[in-house]
């Protein structure tokens, strides 16, 4: 490889074969007073330009921690990354200096959060907060940056953007606030956008609008989108591939349609079964029994075995590997073929 000039656009560095983003055997631990909480235990996935990867899991499954590790915004300490790599266009982000990393964060990879009211700074106008991206990363003056902020607010369909650029976050509705977050995240045309539960705090109708907006922006810009959610309904229409996380690991990964049609892991099977269906009206709703394991005290063998209806002796002793069951379908289950066959 030729020597890397710092000013070189990272986009030109990507080799034909290197994925846009590659998370490779990532581990994240939190060193707490009660012990070491193993939040992420060997997560690997990749993302291509223009692709939408949904990361699905319940609270505490490690999906948000994964996102924050990619962004490099984990609080260290208490967080520690003992192993693994996060390669952006072939370059490992985890070994970069903080300064280099900041040049990627925002301009190349950006992120939107669940609750836009708390994620936006309450004491600065929204336009100021969007314009800050241009002022800090592009060295733009106030007026030009403000004009860019208005352009972006129009782009995310905020009515009367020009008049509202000086308003504060609390003066917007939830949906409009999330649009502001999106405007801020896409300000510098990042190649990857990580959306951490972007619609969880919103009404159902507004959820659909926000998802449509994200999809539209993605189609226009060709960026890769990582959609973190616990909502199977949101995922189905939008995502290309799904990675299901449980206890800090990916337990199943597949294209959307095959996964919905026929899951290859008991956990995914349980998740799909818990979606309320109209024909079930009057019957009891299905729920996966038990609770996710404590990150401080993981069970032996398969981490899902205490809650799994298919668990056998081998599940309580041997931890299964994530393996390709059929081409393009990965599952971390000793009996993946049987689950897939049902």
């Amino acid at each position: 490889m030729t020597s890397l000039d710092k000013s070189t656009d990272v986009a030109t560095l990507g080799h034909g074969d290197a994925p846009l983003l590659e998370v490779d055997d990532l581990y994240v631990e939190f060193h707490t007073r009660d012990g070491i909480a193993k939040a992420i235990n060997g997560v690997s996935f990749h993302l291509e330009a223009g692709e939408t990867l949904a990361v699905l899991g319940e609270s505490g499954s490690g999906k948000s921690v994964t996102a924050q590790a990619i962004m490099g915004i984990l609080d260290m300490p208490p967080a520690v990354v003992p192993r693994g790599a996060v390669r952006y266009a072939g370059r490992d982000l985890l070994t970069m200096s903080p300064k280099e990393r900041r040049k990627i964060r925002g301009p190349e990879i950006s992120m939107i959060f669940q609750d836009a009211l708390s994620a936006l700074n309450p004491v600065f106008p929204v336009g100021w907060q969007i314009a800050e991206m241009f002022r800090v990363h592009k060295g733009m003056n106030r007026r030009d940056a403000q004009a860019e902020a208005i352009r972006l607010m129009e782009r995310v369909q905020i009515p009367a953007a020009k008049d509202r650029v000086r308003s504060y976050p609390h003066q917007f509705s939830g949906g409009m606030r999330q649009r502001i977050m999106i405007a801020m995240a896409i300000a510098l045309n990042p190649r990857i956008l990580i959306a951490d539960e972007p619609t969880t705090a919103l009404d159902v109708t507004v959820q659909a609008q926000i998802m449509a907006l994200l999809q539209e922006i993605q189609e226009e810009s060709g960026m890769g989108l990582i959609l973190i959610t616990h909502d199977l309904g949101v995922v189905a229409d939008v995502a290309d591939r799904i990675a299901v996380m449980y206890a800090g690991r990916i337990v199943e990964s597949a294209d959307v349609l095959p996964l919905y049609a026929d899951p290859a892991h008991p956990y995914t099977e349980g998740l799909l079964a818990s979606i309320p269906q109209l024909e079930q009206k009057g019957k009891e709703l299905y729920a996966i029994k038990g609770l996710p394991p404590s990150l401080l005290r993981m069970p032996d063998g398969c981490k899902f075995n205490p809650r799994c209806s298919r668990a056998q002796d081998i599940c309580r002793t041997d931890d299964p590997e994530l393996r390709e069951v059929v081409p393009g379908r990965w599952s971390r289950c000793h009996f993946a073929e049987e689950v897939l066959g049902d």
Partner: peptide
């Protein structure tokens, strides 16, 4: 520890700006 400081970090701002502008202004209230 607040969410908007996490956002400021996610925007790729330097530590002096994250603390000096985003955190300080709110802490002074």
């Amino acid at each position: 520890r607040s969410d908007y400081v996490r956002t400021a970090n996610a925007k790729g701002l330097g530590p002096s700006r994250v603390v000096g502008v985003h955190t300080l202004r709110n802490s002074m209230i």
